[in-house]
């Protein structure tokens, strides 16, 4: 296991270094000067500004400065939007709302999805099953921004049950965005658990448990549930990716002051430092999540745990 984690960590560092390098040079070849108001400045003024942000140094120097800063958690300085603010600070200051709706969406979606999938599997081929399968297909298919717009239109505008947008009503503000983000994990978990559960319920050890005289609920909860649930860990990674992707648009739609909304804004105004910083932040976040998920799977599943980590 330790060897496996070690190998994964090395890959993680390589991947991140590649992403950072790639991002850095990408930003350098992008059209347009990073100094937005450059045209209005005289050459002297411009030189001053560029010197302030280190843009006058040769490219390799800029690159190493950047990479060196990264290792220390310094993502650079915003030029256009937040004159001179630390990108790291900008991101950190916006982490709260993003984390809250992301986490709520993940938990809500996964829990409801597990329930839905369980019920569907236990009532296979009944209307309950068909309904839940339909909900799951719809949840996988409808993009989060469509779903978010619908929620906003009906629950916000039409029925006035929740704030239409903005982040000024505490928990209430987080409800609709969280629900919008919950759709994908909900649908994924429901489909996954249903399939797993049906497979597990048809397995020999369940027949043996029945042969021992276990009751329906004992079969479902003591024997089947755990075995169906453990592999769900493997889709937590894709779920996290979907939540992050969704957060860009959902935050935009509900005007949530989170990282995603900031990211989209930076793209609009070509704030390269923020784009780079956020890109790297996202990458680190997702890569770490996927690594953690793999490790978690190994810790929880006794088959993997005790055989010292296959794969």
């Amino acid at each position: 296991m330790a060897k496996y984690i070690g190998k994964r960590l090395i890959y993680m560092v390589i991947t991140l270094a590649l992403i950072a390098t790639f991002t850095f040079f990408l930003m350098k070849i992008l059209p347009g000067s990073p100094v937005a108001s450059a045209d209005k400045l005289s050459p002297e003024q411009r030189a001053v500004v560029e010197a302030r942000y280190g843009l006058d140094k040769p490219l390799p120097v800029q690159y190493f400065d950047y990479m060196f800063g990264l290792v220390q958690g310094d993502l650079g300085i915003s030029i256009n939007q937040f004159k001179g603010a630390d990108v790291t600070d900008v991101i950190l200051s916006r982490m709260g709302p993003s984390a809250q709706i992301g986490f709520q969406g993940m938990v809500l979606g996964t829990v409801l999805g597990i329930l839905l999938g369980m019920i569907a599997a236990l009532r296979q081929n009944t209307w309950v099953d068909y309904t839940s399968t339909f909900v799951a297909i719809v949840g996988i298919s409808i993009p989060s921004f469509v779903f978010a717009s619908l929620l906003q239109y009906w629950f916000g505008l039409k029925w006035d049950l929740f704030p239409v947008a903005l982040w000024n009503d505490g928990f209430m503000s987080s409800v609709l965005p969280s629900v919008a983000l919950a759709m994908f994990p909900l649908a994924t978990a429901a489909r996954f658990i249903r399939t797993e559960m049906i497979e597990v319920l048809g397995s020999d050890y369940i027949t043996l448990a029945k042969a021992k005289g276990a009751s329906g609920s004992e079969i479902a909860f003591k024997h089947a549930f755990r075995n169906a649930l453990i592999p769900l860990i493997t889709v937590l990674g894709p779920m996290a990716v979907a939540i992050l992707t969704g957060s860009l648009v959902v935050e935009q739609i509900f005007a949530i002051p989170g990282i995603g909304e900031q990211f989209v804004k930076s793209i609009m105004v070509n704030d390269f430092a923020i784009i780079m910083g956020t890109t790297i932040f996202f990458s680190v976040f997702l890569i770490v999540i996927i690594l953690l998920v793999d490790i978690l799977y190994g810790v929880i599943d006794p088959r993997i745990r005790l055989s010292g980590g296959k794969n």
């Binding site: 397995s203 020999d204 050890y205 027949t207 043996l208 448990a209 042969a211 024997h223 755990r226 075995n227 453990i230 599943d301 006794p302 088959r303």
Partner: peptide
Amino acid sequence: MIFQDPMTSLNPT
């Protein structure tokens, strides 16, 4: 009852 395949007859977890 005892079943055919002992590899799958026991609950793995």
